[in-house]
Amino acid sequence: MTQAPRGRSRRVRPVLRTYSRLLAAGFRRGSRYRLAAFGGLVANATFGLLKVAVLFAVVDAAGGEVAGYDVGAMSAYIWISQGLLGSVNLMGRTDIAERIRTGDVTTDFLRPLDVQAAAVVEDVGKSLFALIPRGVPTVTIGLLLVGMDGPDGPLGLLLGALSLLLGITVSCATVYLVAVAGFWMVDNRGLQILYMVLSGFLAGLFVPIALFPGWLHATALATPFPSMLQFPVDVLSGRADHATAALLVVVQVGWLVAVAALGQALTRAGRRRLEVQGG
């Protein structure tokens, strides 16, 4: 009886170490592109200032508050969402998509790793790194130039960090779905472009989804996109109180489980397809 747990921990530890190394590798790969990060930062800040102008005017025109956003909340929305732009994958592109297209993925299946988990974990590592050169500086610029609301106490900060991690993970896991479609499609570029066009809009990158007309708001909520950006922003900015924040995190977990399960099923089906066709 005492053997079983020890046996499992012996198996669990190497697996954890493998994934933590993959996470670190993704982190390091991101760190190679310092100049690119600088360029991204300039772009984020400029777009941020333009959005401040127009969205503050909206708040002003609506009499100081619109859909629950006052100036401080709107500022937080703008700068946190701009800051997350380098971390949340709204482009729909990943390395694994290319490996599936070229067939290199066959060798990935030979490694003693879960292909889906490995791809997603490495992307999450890359995304987390981007918070350092792009995320934090962007938010800092906003804080210094404009000022903004912040998390609702230590618990709010904790929930915000959790929601942020979940948001990044949901985006990587969803982009993975775009990639695995490559098992069945000769060219999944169309799907990738569709993802790129729709994800930003429905994730609340351009306008907070609370400002959407009712039907569009409902449509957005029926997709995983708000879980990638809008929810983390709402929790981090303190716009959502603790109870709402907890609810949003639960919804994020729900979406993560859903897209991860779908990804796992598609990966297995794709692998069987490869085996049948002989790679």
């Binding site: 592109y33 100049l35 690119a36 600088f38 360029g39 991204g40 300039v42 772009a43 800040a45 400029t46 777009f47 333009l50």
Partner: peptide, 15 residues
Amino acid sequence: FLVDGYEATNAFVYG
């Protein structure tokens, strides 16, 4: 000049 930092020009072209 920018090469890898080309995104900075996006701020003004697409911005």
